[in-house]
Computed example of a mutant assay.
Amino acid sequence: MKQVRKAIIPAAGLGTRFLPATKALAKEMLPIVDKPTIQFIVEEARKSGIEDIVVVDGKNKRSIEDHFDSNPELEDNLRAKHKDEMLKLVEETTDINIYFIRQSHPRGLGDAVLTARDFIGDEPFVVMLGDDLNNINNNGNALTKELIDSYHQTGASTLAVMRVPHEDTAKYGVINPSAEVEKGLYNVTNFVEKPDPKDAPSDLAIIGRYVFTPEIFDVLAKTKPGKGGEIQLTDAINTLNKTQRVFAHEYTGDRYDVGNKFGWIQTNIEYGLQHPQTKDELREYIKNLGAKLSAEDQKKTK
Rank of each mutant, 00 (worst) to 15 (best):
Pro36Glu: 10
Ile32Ala: 03
Phe68Glu: 09
Arg245Ala: 11
Lys194Ala: 10
Lys171Thr: 04
Phe100Cys: 08
Thr278Arg: 00
Asn260Val: 13
His67Lys: 08
Ile101Phe: 07
Arg255Asn: 11
Lys261Ala: 14
Pro124Thr: 05
Ala24Asn: 15
Gly173Ala: 15
Arg102Leu: 01
Pro72Arg: 13
Asp66Leu: 08
Gln3Cys: 04
Ala295Arg: 07
Ile64Ala: 09
Gln232His: 03
Arg17Thr: 10
Leu133Tyr: 07
Val188Leu: 09
Gln103Phe: 01
Ile269Asp: 03
Leu159Pro: 00
Thr169His: 11
Arg209Tyr: 06
Arg5Trp: 01
Tyr251Asn: 11
Pro201Ser: 13
Ala248Arg: 03
Glu281Ile: 08
Thr144Trp: 00
Ser157Asn: 02
Glu182Thr: 15
Val4Asn: 09
Ala112Asn: 06
Asp196Phe: 10
Val33Trp: 07
Pro195Tyr: 14
Val192Glu: 10
Arg163Trp: 10
Ile175Thr: 10
Glu28Tyr: 01
Lys302Arg: 10
Asp131Gln: 05
Gly208Glu: 05
Ser150Ile: 05
Gly13Asp: 11
Ala21Arg: 14
Lys35Gln: 09
Leu114Tyr: 14
Asn241Lys: 10
Glu44Ala: 09
Tyr172Val: 05
Val258Tyr: 10
Ile207Asn: 04
Ile269Val: 08
His105Cys: 00
Asp69Gly: 14
Leu114Phe: 13
Gly130Phe: 01
Arg107Lys: 14
His275Glu: 09
Glu230Tyr: 04
Glu85Gly: 11
Gly253His: 06
Ile9Arg: 07
Ala116Glu: 12
Gln103Thr: 06
Leu129Cys: 02
His82Phe: 15
Thr93Leu: 06
Glu284Cys: 02
Ala24Tyr: 12
Thr234Ile: 15
Phe247Gly: 03
Ala221Asn: 12
Glu270Lys: 13
Asp95Ser: 15
Lys88Gln: 15
Trp264Met: 12
Phe18Lys: 13
Ser202Lys: 12
Ile98Glu: 07
Pro276Glu: 11
Leu220Gly: 08
Ile96Ser: 09
Pro214Gly: 07
Asn97His: 13
Leu220Ala: 05
Glu91Leu: 15
Leu204Gln: 09
Ile148Ala: 10
Phe212Lys: 04
Leu114Lys: 13
Lys292Ala: 15
Lys287Thr: 02
Ala116Cys: 06
Ala236Tyr: 07
Leu240Arg: 08
Gly229Leu: 11
Gln103Ala: 15
Phe125Ala: 06
Glu51Gly: 00
Val192Cys: 09
Ala11Cys: 14
Asp218Met: 04
Tyr172Gln: 03
Leu147Ile: 07
Asn190Pro: 10
Asp149Pro: 05
Lys242Ser: 13
Asp254Phe: 07
Arg79Met: 13
Tyr271Val: 02
Thr16Gly: 07
Glu180Leu: 14
Ala295Thr: 08
Gly130Pro: 00
Gly58Met: 09
Pro225Met: 09
Phe119Pro: 02
Tyr186Cys: 13
Thr213Trp: 02
Gly121Leu: 08
Ile96Pro: 07
Asp131Pro: 02
Gln232Cys: 10
Asp52Ala: 08
Gln244Ile: 00
Thr154Ile: 11
Asp297Leu: 13
Pro177Thr: 14
Val211Leu: 08
Phe217Cys: 04
Leu289Ile: 02
Asn238Met: 13
Ser48Arg: 05
Glu230Asn: 11
Gly155Glu: 08
